[in-house]
Simulated scan of single mutants.
Amino acid sequence: MLSNLPLEIILKVFGYLSAEDKLQLAQVNQTLGSAFVYHSEAKYKRLSCYLYTGYELSVILPLCGSNIYKIDISEELTEKTAELITKYCTNVESATLEIRHQMFNACKGILSIKSLSSIYLVNGDYREPDMLQYFNPNCRVLTLFDLSNVQSQNLRRLIHLEDLDVAPFDYLTDMLKICSHLKKLRCLKLTYCKLTQEEDFLYPELETLQVSYSKIYSDLPRCPNLKQLSLILNEYHNSVKIINFIVKYATTLERLVITIAYDEHHPFTAHNLLDALRECTNLQFLHINCFLLKNLLSENVETFIKVLKANCFDAQRRFVLEVSQTALWALVSV
Protein backbone atom coordinates (compact mmCIF):
# COMPACT_ATOMS: atom_id res chain seq x y z
CA MET A 1 0.00 0.00 0.00
CA LEU A 2 1.34 3.47 -0.93
CA SER A 3 0.91 4.82 2.59
CA ASN A 4 3.35 2.22 3.95
CA LEU A 5 6.20 3.32 1.70
CA PRO A 6 9.00 5.59 2.96
CA LEU A 7 8.21 9.30 2.76
CA GLU A 8 10.85 9.96 0.10
CA ILE A 9 9.17 7.41 -2.20
CA ILE A 10 5.72 8.92 -1.62
CA LEU A 11 7.11 12.35 -2.42
CA LYS A 12 8.53 11.05 -5.70
CA VAL A 13 5.10 9.66 -6.57
CA PHE A 14 3.53 13.08 -5.92
CA GLY A 15 6.12 14.59 -8.23
CA TYR A 16 4.79 12.59 -11.18
CA LEU A 17 1.13 13.44 -10.63
CA SER A 18 -1.01 16.26 -12.08
CA ALA A 19 -2.36 18.93 -9.73
CA GLU A 20 -5.80 17.29 -9.80
CA ASP A 21 -4.44 13.84 -9.00
CA LYS A 22 -2.36 15.22 -6.14
CA LEU A 23 -5.46 16.63 -4.50
CA GLN A 24 -7.30 13.34 -4.97
CA LEU A 25 -4.44 11.34 -3.45
CA ALA A 26 -4.05 13.76 -0.53
CA GLN A 27 -7.59 12.91 0.61
CA VAL A 28 -7.05 9.13 0.85
CA ASN A 29 -5.73 9.13 4.40
CA GLN A 30 -3.80 11.21 6.94
CA THR A 31 -0.39 9.87 5.88
CA LEU A 32 -0.85 10.85 2.25
CA GLY A 33 -2.37 14.14 3.31
CA SER A 34 0.74 14.92 5.39
CA ALA A 35 2.97 13.90 2.49
CA PHE A 36 1.03 16.30 0.23
CA VAL A 37 1.61 19.11 2.72
CA TYR A 38 5.33 18.37 2.80
CA HIS A 39 5.46 18.15 -1.00
CA SER A 40 3.48 21.38 -1.50
CA GLU A 41 4.79 23.47 1.39
CA ALA A 42 6.45 26.22 -0.68
CA LYS A 43 3.68 26.35 -3.29
CA TYR A 44 0.91 27.39 -0.92
CA LYS A 45 2.77 29.74 1.43
CA ARG A 46 1.36 32.52 -0.75
CA LEU A 47 -2.13 31.55 -1.87
CA SER A 48 -4.15 33.38 -4.53
CA CYS A 49 -7.62 31.94 -4.07
CA TYR A 50 -8.88 33.13 -7.45
CA LEU A 51 -6.51 30.68 -9.15
CA TYR A 52 -8.34 27.69 -7.67
CA THR A 53 -11.82 26.24 -7.78
CA GLY A 54 -13.96 25.88 -4.69
CA TYR A 55 -13.26 22.15 -4.66
CA GLU A 56 -9.49 22.65 -4.84
CA LEU A 57 -9.60 25.14 -1.99
CA SER A 58 -11.70 22.71 0.09
CA VAL A 59 -8.72 20.33 -0.04
CA ILE A 60 -5.83 22.81 0.08
CA LEU A 61 -7.03 24.95 3.00
CA PRO A 62 -7.60 22.17 5.60
CA LEU A 63 -4.29 20.52 4.74
CA CYS A 64 -2.01 23.50 4.07
CA GLY A 65 -3.81 26.37 5.79
CA SER A 66 -1.43 26.59 8.73
CA ASN A 67 1.51 27.07 6.33
CA ILE A 68 -0.08 30.00 4.47
CA TYR A 69 1.34 33.39 5.46
CA LYS A 70 -0.06 35.52 2.60
CA ILE A 71 -3.48 35.15 0.99
CA ASP A 72 -5.21 36.97 -1.86
CA ILE A 73 -8.98 36.69 -1.93
CA SER A 74 -9.79 39.64 -4.16
CA GLU A 75 -12.40 37.79 -6.22
CA GLU A 76 -15.90 36.69 -5.18
CA LEU A 77 -15.70 34.71 -1.97
CA THR A 78 -18.14 31.97 -0.92
CA GLU A 79 -19.12 31.52 2.70
CA LYS A 80 -17.71 27.99 2.69
CA THR A 81 -14.28 29.16 1.51
CA ALA A 82 -14.32 32.03 4.02
CA GLU A 83 -15.07 29.60 6.85
CA LEU A 84 -12.19 27.37 5.77
CA ILE A 85 -9.79 30.31 5.65
CA THR A 86 -10.86 31.49 9.11
CA LYS A 87 -10.60 28.01 10.58
CA TYR A 88 -7.36 26.76 9.04
CA CYS A 89 -5.24 29.80 8.11
CA THR A 90 -4.31 30.49 11.69
CA ASN A 91 -0.82 31.79 10.88
CA VAL A 92 -1.65 34.05 7.96
CA GLU A 93 0.09 37.42 8.27
CA SER A 94 -1.05 39.30 5.17
CA ALA A 95 -4.36 39.39 3.29
CA THR A 96 -5.64 41.16 0.18
CA LEU A 97 -9.42 41.45 -0.07
CA GLU A 98 -12.08 43.13 -2.15
CA ILE A 99 -15.18 43.68 -0.03
CA ARG A 100 -18.66 43.76 -1.51
CA HIS A 101 -21.91 44.10 0.41
CA GLN A 102 -23.21 40.64 -0.36
CA MET A 103 -19.99 38.96 0.81
CA PHE A 104 -19.11 41.09 3.83
CA ASN A 105 -20.51 38.62 6.39
CA ALA A 106 -18.26 35.95 4.90
CA CYS A 107 -15.22 38.21 5.33
CA LYS A 108 -15.74 39.16 8.98
CA GLY A 109 -13.98 36.09 10.34
CA ILE A 110 -11.01 36.54 8.00
CA LEU A 111 -10.49 40.18 8.96
CA SER A 112 -10.36 39.25 12.64
CA ILE A 113 -7.77 36.43 12.38
CA LYS A 114 -5.38 37.10 15.27
CA SER A 115 -2.19 36.54 13.28
CA LEU A 116 -3.25 38.97 10.54
CA SER A 117 -0.94 41.97 10.76
CA SER A 118 -1.19 43.37 7.21
CA ILE A 119 -4.44 44.05 5.32
CA TYR A 120 -4.87 45.46 1.82
CA LEU A 121 -8.56 46.11 1.28
CA VAL A 122 -10.57 47.47 -1.63
CA ASN A 123 -14.08 48.42 -0.58
CA GLY A 124 -16.28 47.68 -3.58
CA ASP A 125 -19.70 48.86 -2.41
CA TYR A 126 -19.95 48.24 1.35
CA ARG A 127 -21.10 51.51 2.95
CA GLU A 128 -22.15 50.43 6.45
CA PRO A 129 -20.21 52.14 9.28
CA ASP A 130 -19.20 48.91 11.04
CA MET A 131 -16.60 47.65 8.52
CA LEU A 132 -13.45 48.41 10.53
CA GLN A 133 -14.95 47.02 13.75
CA TYR A 134 -14.16 43.49 12.58
CA PHE A 135 -10.49 44.10 11.82
CA ASN A 136 -7.90 42.41 13.99
CA PRO A 137 -7.11 45.18 16.53
CA ASN A 138 -3.43 44.16 16.42
CA CYS A 139 -3.15 44.91 12.69
CA ARG A 140 0.04 46.90 11.99
CA VAL A 141 -0.09 47.60 8.23
CA LEU A 142 -3.34 48.73 6.58
CA THR A 143 -4.17 49.93 3.06
CA LEU A 144 -7.77 51.01 2.44
CA PHE A 145 -9.37 52.01 -0.84
CA ASP A 146 -12.81 53.62 -1.10
CA LEU A 147 -13.33 54.27 2.58
CA SER A 148 -16.22 56.53 3.60
CA ASN A 149 -16.16 59.33 6.18
CA VAL A 150 -18.42 57.36 8.51
CA GLN A 151 -16.28 54.24 8.24
CA SER A 152 -13.07 56.18 8.83
CA GLN A 153 -14.16 57.07 12.38
CA ASN A 154 -13.40 53.50 13.49
CA LEU A 155 -9.76 53.75 12.43
CA ARG A 156 -8.93 55.14 15.87
CA ARG A 157 -9.56 51.74 17.48
CA LEU A 158 -6.66 50.19 15.53
CA ILE A 159 -4.13 51.58 17.97
CA HIS A 160 -1.32 49.23 16.93
CA LEU A 161 -1.17 50.50 13.35
CA GLU A 162 2.33 51.45 12.20
CA ASP A 163 1.67 51.92 8.47
CA LEU A 164 -1.61 53.40 7.14
CA ASP A 165 -2.50 54.20 3.52
CA VAL A 166 -6.01 55.61 2.89
CA ALA A 167 -7.61 56.47 -0.46
CA PRO A 168 -11.37 57.17 -0.16
CA PHE A 169 -14.10 57.31 -2.79
CA ASP A 170 -14.84 60.88 -1.72
CA TYR A 171 -12.89 63.50 0.24
CA LEU A 172 -12.34 62.43 3.83
CA THR A 173 -12.43 64.94 6.66
CA ASP A 174 -11.01 64.78 10.20
CA MET A 175 -8.26 62.36 9.13
CA LEU A 176 -5.50 64.17 11.01
CA LYS A 177 -7.60 64.11 14.16
CA ILE A 178 -8.59 60.45 13.75
CA CYS A 179 -5.06 59.30 13.02
CA SER A 180 -3.61 61.28 15.93
CA HIS A 181 -5.00 58.53 18.17
CA LEU A 182 -2.65 56.04 16.48
CA LYS A 183 0.47 56.76 18.50
CA LYS A 184 2.52 53.97 16.90
CA LEU A 185 2.13 55.25 13.33
CA ARG A 186 5.43 55.41 11.47
CA CYS A 187 4.06 55.87 7.94
CA LEU A 188 0.88 57.76 6.96
CA LYS A 189 -0.34 58.21 3.37
CA LEU A 190 -3.49 60.22 2.76
CA THR A 191 -5.15 60.60 -0.65
CA TYR A 192 -8.25 62.68 -1.47
CA CYS A 193 -8.59 64.17 1.99
CA LYS A 194 -9.71 67.60 3.15
CA LEU A 195 -7.38 68.87 5.87
CA THR A 196 -9.10 71.66 7.75
CA GLN A 197 -8.28 71.05 11.41
CA GLU A 198 -6.89 73.95 13.39
CA GLU A 199 -5.64 71.81 16.27
CA ASP A 200 -1.94 71.08 16.57
CA PHE A 201 -1.83 67.27 16.51
CA LEU A 202 1.23 65.31 17.58
CA TYR A 203 2.46 62.18 15.79
CA PRO A 204 5.36 61.09 17.99
CA GLU A 205 6.67 58.15 15.91
CA LEU A 206 5.79 59.22 12.36
CA GLU A 207 8.72 59.04 9.93
CA THR A 208 6.90 59.19 6.56
CA LEU A 209 4.02 61.52 5.68
CA GLN A 210 2.46 61.61 2.22
CA VAL A 211 -0.50 63.81 1.25
CA SER A 212 -1.77 63.42 -2.33
CA TYR A 213 -4.58 64.98 -4.39
CA SER A 214 -5.98 66.57 -1.25
CA LYS A 215 -7.33 69.98 -0.25
CA ILE A 216 -5.15 71.55 2.41
CA TYR A 217 -6.58 74.41 4.44
CA SER A 218 -4.58 74.02 7.64
CA ASP A 219 -1.16 73.22 9.02
CA LEU A 220 0.29 69.72 9.04
CA PRO A 221 0.79 67.88 12.36
CA ARG A 222 3.85 67.97 14.58
CA CYS A 223 6.12 65.05 13.71
CA PRO A 224 9.38 65.26 15.68
CA ASN A 225 10.84 62.22 13.89
CA LEU A 226 9.68 62.89 10.32
CA LYS A 227 12.24 61.82 7.70
CA GLN A 228 10.20 61.83 4.47
CA LEU A 229 7.56 64.33 3.37
CA SER A 230 5.62 63.96 0.10
CA LEU A 231 3.20 66.63 -1.13
CA ILE A 232 1.72 65.46 -4.43
CA LEU A 233 -0.63 67.56 -6.59
CA ASN A 234 -2.64 69.02 -3.72
CA GLU A 235 -4.83 72.10 -3.65
CA TYR A 236 -3.69 74.69 -1.11
CA HIS A 237 -5.75 77.44 0.50
CA ASN A 238 -4.39 80.95 -0.07
CA SER A 239 -3.34 81.25 3.56
CA VAL A 240 -1.28 78.05 3.40
CA LYS A 241 2.42 78.32 2.57
CA ILE A 242 4.07 75.16 1.30
CA ILE A 243 7.47 76.40 2.42
CA ASN A 244 6.21 76.47 6.02
CA PHE A 245 5.29 72.78 5.83
CA ILE A 246 8.79 71.87 4.73
CA VAL A 247 10.68 74.09 7.18
CA LYS A 248 8.55 72.75 10.02
CA TYR A 249 10.43 69.45 9.73
CA ALA A 250 13.82 70.96 8.88
CA THR A 251 15.84 69.29 11.63
CA THR A 252 14.85 65.70 10.75
CA LEU A 253 13.81 65.72 7.07
CA GLU A 254 15.94 63.54 4.77
CA ARG A 255 13.66 63.02 1.73
CA LEU A 256 11.29 65.51 0.11
CA VAL A 257 8.83 64.88 -2.71
CA ILE A 258 6.93 67.91 -3.98
CA THR A 259 4.90 68.02 -7.20
CA ILE A 260 2.47 70.87 -7.78
CA ALA A 261 0.41 72.17 -10.67
CA TYR A 262 1.62 75.73 -11.20
CA ASP A 263 -0.94 78.19 -9.90
CA GLU A 264 -0.31 81.88 -10.26
CA HIS A 265 -2.40 82.51 -7.12
CA HIS A 266 -0.30 80.15 -5.05
CA PRO A 267 3.15 79.70 -6.56
CA PHE A 268 5.96 77.62 -5.14
CA THR A 269 9.09 78.93 -6.77
CA ALA A 270 12.68 77.85 -7.05
CA HIS A 271 13.49 80.56 -4.48
CA ASN A 272 11.11 78.89 -2.02
CA LEU A 273 12.82 75.60 -2.71
CA LEU A 274 16.25 77.07 -2.09
CA ASP A 275 15.03 78.51 1.20
CA ALA A 276 13.81 75.04 2.16
CA LEU A 277 17.16 73.49 1.26
CA ARG A 278 18.98 76.04 3.41
CA GLU A 279 16.86 75.12 6.42
CA CYS A 280 16.77 71.34 5.82
CA THR A 281 20.46 70.60 6.25
CA ASN A 282 19.87 66.84 6.54
CA LEU A 283 17.94 66.60 3.25
CA GLN A 284 19.56 64.06 0.91
CA PHE A 285 16.85 63.33 -1.68
CA LEU A 286 14.56 65.69 -3.61
CA HIS A 287 11.81 64.93 -6.14
CA ILE A 288 10.37 67.97 -7.95
CA ASN A 289 8.41 69.12 -11.02
CA CYS A 290 10.15 69.84 -14.31
CA PHE A 291 9.31 73.56 -14.18
CA LEU A 292 10.93 73.83 -10.73
CA LEU A 293 13.98 72.03 -12.04
CA LYS A 294 14.20 74.40 -14.99
CA ASN A 295 14.12 77.47 -12.74
CA LEU A 296 16.44 75.90 -10.23
CA LEU A 297 19.18 74.88 -12.66
CA SER A 298 18.87 77.60 -15.28
CA GLU A 299 18.37 80.71 -13.16
CA ASN A 300 19.62 79.67 -9.74
CA VAL A 301 22.25 77.01 -10.38
CA GLU A 302 25.07 78.88 -8.63
CA THR A 303 22.97 79.48 -5.54
CA PHE A 304 21.87 75.84 -5.62
CA ILE A 305 25.47 74.67 -5.62
CA LYS A 306 26.39 77.04 -2.78
CA VAL A 307 23.52 75.69 -0.67
CA LEU A 308 24.60 72.09 -1.30
CA LYS A 309 28.18 72.95 -0.36
CA ALA A 310 26.98 74.61 2.82
CA ASN A 311 25.06 71.40 3.61
CA CYS A 312 28.33 69.41 3.26
CA PHE A 313 27.60 67.71 -0.07
CA ASP A 314 30.57 66.92 -2.31
CA ALA A 315 31.83 64.26 -4.75
CA GLN A 316 31.73 61.63 -2.00
CA ARG A 317 28.49 62.65 -0.31
CA ARG A 318 25.99 63.20 -3.11
CA PHE A 319 22.63 64.88 -3.22
CA VAL A 320 20.01 62.95 -5.22
CA LEU A 321 17.62 64.91 -7.44
CA GLU A 322 14.69 63.12 -9.10
CA VAL A 323 12.55 64.85 -11.69
CA SER A 324 8.78 64.50 -12.09
CA GLN A 325 7.48 61.07 -13.15
CA THR A 326 10.13 60.44 -15.75
CA ALA A 327 13.06 58.09 -15.57
CA LEU A 328 15.43 61.07 -15.39
CA TRP A 329 17.80 60.97 -12.47
CA ALA A 330 20.40 63.58 -11.67
CA LEU A 331 23.11 62.90 -9.19
CA VAL A 332 24.35 66.35 -8.32
CA SER A 333 27.89 66.51 -6.97
CA VAL A 334 29.74 69.68 -6.19
Results as ranks from 00 to 15, higher is better:
residue 4 N to F: 10
residue 8 E to G: 06
residue 10 I to C: 14
residue 16 Y to Q: 10
residue 17 L to T: 07
residue 18 S to P: 04
residue 26 A to R: 04
residue 26 A to Q: 01
residue 31 T to H: 09
residue 37 V to H: 05
residue 37 V to R: 14
residue 39 H to G: 03
residue 46 R to D: 05
residue 55 Y to C: 02
residue 55 Y to V: 05
residue 56 E to P: 05
residue 59 V to N: 02
residue 64 C to P: 01
residue 64 C to F: 09
residue 68 I to L: 05
residue 70 K to Q: 11
residue 71 I to K: 06
residue 74 S to T: 14
residue 83 E to L: 07
residue 86 T to Y: 04
residue 88 Y to G: 00
residue 91 N to P: 01
residue 92 V to G: 01
residue 94 S to W: 09
residue 96 T to Y: 11
residue 97 L to M: 15
residue 105 N to V: 08
residue 108 K to A: 04
residue 111 L to M: 15
residue 115 S to W: 05
residue 117 S to G: 04
residue 118 S to T: 07
residue 120 Y to Q: 10
residue 123 N to H: 00
residue 123 N to D: 02
residue 134 Y to D: 13
residue 135 F to C: 06
residue 136 N to P: 06
residue 137 P to N: 02
residue 140 R to A: 02
residue 148 S to D: 06
residue 161 L to W: 06
residue 161 L to D: 02
residue 164 L to T: 02
residue 165 D to Y: 14
residue 167 A to M: 12
residue 167 A to C: 12
residue 169 F to G: 11
residue 170 D to W: 04
residue 172 L to K: 01
residue 172 L to H: 05
residue 176 L to A: 03
residue 179 C to L: 05
residue 180 S to N: 08
residue 181 H to K: 09
residue 184 K to Q: 11
residue 193 C to R: 04
residue 199 E to K: 14
residue 203 Y to L: 01
residue 204 P to K: 09
residue 210 Q to Y: 08
residue 210 Q to N: 11
residue 217 Y to T: 01
residue 229 L to K: 05
residue 235 E to K: 14
residue 236 Y to Q: 10
residue 237 H to V: 04
residue 238 N to E: 11
residue 244 N to P: 00
residue 253 L to C: 02
residue 264 E to W: 09
residue 265 H to T: 11
residue 268 F to Q: 00
residue 270 A to R: 08
residue 275 D to E: 15
residue 279 E to Q: 09
residue 279 E to C: 09
residue 283 L to K: 11
residue 292 L to M: 07
residue 294 K to Y: 13
residue 295 N to E: 14
residue 296 L to I: 14
residue 300 N to R: 13
residue 303 T to S: 10
residue 316 Q to T: 12
residue 317 R to M: 11
residue 318 R to I: 14
residue 318 R to W: 07
residue 332 V to R: 09
